[in-house]
């Protein structure tokens, strides 16, 4: 065998092995996703009942549902988004329309990107310090603040990106007919990037509806349904955490039902946001 030929064979072997490993890596990634979904459906559906949506969390061994946790999650997520959306869109507006290439804009952009992947438990500690320790008790408000702080960088990032996609000529057209800057932004840029900005908000909802860590020391938990957001408030993720780690059979079942609810919500929101984003670009 000539040396040339052995190099060729060696290259071919390396190629085969690397291709095989790449297939394997992809299959592992997909298999984990499939296994998680399978387990969620298997244990989640069998634990899901009508009463899950109608009753509050039970004592160990008793019948009950997740009503208080579902309502608590909806209320806190809703409040968080209602507060974070105007601030986030406004900040995104400044970055995309006024800040642009300025140094301050670059710094804010950089820190926003860092906050985007910051550990959410740190946000929980911060909100504990400003909204729980100062008031003296855990509350749904504190939970909503923590979730809002996590949603904020997501909204800032996507709204800036989406406004950047709007062609400069549209802005120029608006200015040419005498509209001031703000009017151009509100009537042209916002209108044109509406579906893009909505995508960002949907992604932010998806991101915070599964968050557990920042709620542990802010909203804490509540065994009962409460309409008072000033009280400790239960949420699906925290109830799942508490129930899944417990030794009680009925609690673990409810945890799986809750896990299924959360996962379906998050995945549907993600797919929805994706299709919305595809339509807007």
């Amino acid at each position: 065998m000539t040396p040339d030929r052995s190099i060729l064979i060696q290259r071919r072997v390396v190629e085969r092995i690397s291709v095989g490993l790449a297939w394997l890596a992809t299959l592992i990634g997909l298999a984990v996703l499939a296994l998680i979904l399978f387990e969620l459906l298997r244990r989640g559906i069998s634990s899901l009942r009508v009463s899950t949506f109608l009753q509050s969390t039970p004592a160990p061994g008793e019948a009950g549902g997740l009503l208080n946790a579902i309502i608590g999650s909806l209320v806190m997520t809703g409040l968080a988004i209602v507060v974070a959306t105007p601030i986030g869109v406004a900040a995104g507006t400044w970055l995309a329309e006024y800040g642009r290439d300025r140094k301050l804009a670059a710094i804010i952009r950089f820190l926003n990107d860092t906050l985007l992947s910051a550990p959410s438990i740190i946000i929980g500690l911060f909100v504990y310090g400003i909204a729980v320790r100062t008031v003296g008790h855990f509350s749904g408000w504190a939970g909503a603040i923590a979730l809002g702080l996590i949603a904020l960088p997501v909204i800032v990032r996507t709204s800036e990106d989406m406004m950047n996609l709007i062609p400069e000529s549209l802005r120029e057209a608006g200015m040419a007919v005498g509209a001031p800057r703000w009017k151009v932004i509100v009537s042209i840029v916002y209108r044109a990037s509406f579906s893009g900005i909505s995508t960002g908000i949907l992604l932010a909802v998806a991101r915070i509806s599964g968050e557990t860590a920042p709620l542990l020391f802010t909203a804490l938990n509540n065994q009962f349904l409460t309409s008072d957001i000033n009280q400790p408030t239960s949420s699906l993720p925290v109830v799942i955490f508490q129930f899944a780690m417990s030794p009680y059979e009925n609690w673990q079942q409810l945890a799986w039902a809750g896990a299924l609810l959360i996962s379906v919500t998050v995945l549907v929101l993600n797919i929805l946001a994706r299709s919305l984003a595809r339509r807007s670009t």
């Binding site: 992809t26 996703l33 899944a244 896990a259």
Partner: peptide, 24 residues
């Protein structure tokens, strides 16, 4: 579709990974 599937893995809330880790 495959990129979307891999990215959906990123969207799974961490508490779900935790439960799956503990029970499976």
């Amino acid at each position: 579709p495959l990129s979307v599937a891999i990215e959906l893995l990123a969207a799974v809330p961490s508490i779900i990974f935790g439960m799956w880790g503990l029970f499976v």
